[in-house]
Nucleic acid binder design. Sequence first.
DNA 1: GTAATTGCAAATAATTTGCCGTGCA
DNA 2: TGCACGGCAAATTATTTGCAATTAC
Lengths: 155, 155
Amino acid sequence: MTGQRRVVARVLSEASDHPDVEELYRRAARLDARISIATVYRTVRLLEERGILERRDFGGGRARYEATEHGHHYHLIDIDTGKVIEFQEPEHQRLLRAVAERLGFDLVSLRLELFGRRRSPAMAEPRRAAGRADAEPAEPVAAEPVAAELVRPAR
Amino acid sequence: MTGQRRVVARVLSEASDHPDVEELYRRAARLDARISIATVYRTVRLLEERGILERRDFGGGRARYEATEHGHHYHLIDIDTGKVIEFQEPEHQRLLRAVAERLGFDLVSLRLELFGRRRSPAMAEPRRAAGRADAEPAEPVAAEPVAAELVRPAR
DNA sequence: GTAATTGCAAATAATTTGCCGTGCA
DNA sequence: TGCACGGCAAATTATTTGCAATTAC
């Protein structure tokens, strides 16, 4: 059973990035104008249920998709630009599987995402500007640690 | 500046699980009935921006929250029950930081979630039921790997 | 007193669905 | 011919926001 679903599948196969549904729809419509976004949603869901696609959440509200690969790779997201970099780390797979087993589970899938900021080679150690260790006498605000944070100056 | 925000903060401090906004609202309302869910959303966003809370996505549509800990732990989600188990793995932190650096980034935060299924000690190797290797002659469906998957019987 | 915060209801945004028409098998 | 599939628009769900009233400091 197929129709314009083939088009969506094709777009997915050709994608080497991590498109969201909106983007998939745009690409699919370019190949066949009589595709509706509902179909894209339906197809994508179907494929995800069958384990052929994986849904990702890189922040920014919309789900993004990529074809399941059985040699796993992970993602590093540049928090300033939103750009996604893939990397491999096959050792992890094994390590994490072992962790799951130790807890009594079979590992079905996993999610590993790093969020980072591009290193400016200029400044050697940007770590926490130094000083600023005794800014406020820290008024007592109930014994609630989270509440306490609400009282400090915004950033 | 605070008000019923203190209540939300308190609920958050006391939570040892990973409540979603709905649940936070329920708990907060128990302590002070004149809190609206909009306030919970606002407070939670505020705290997330300040880095005091972390938003999690364990599947199931709603965001879930937990207080930021600087000794990181990770999550294993039971895909059958939705139950979340925390585990530690301090070695990882370092390892992943190194990975990021190698790619030219400072690691700002990371997300590591395992999705697993409780092991039934009964059946030794549930792996893929055996047999069933030659179900269909695999009709040619364009050269699209994703499309090909759409043709196989559902599960 | 002044600015920040809240409640409420309405607005958004992403995703799903009902229904009915259409095309594939 | 039957039934899965697609289009459209309406429905749902999570979250955000405008605005006037309220509260904190």
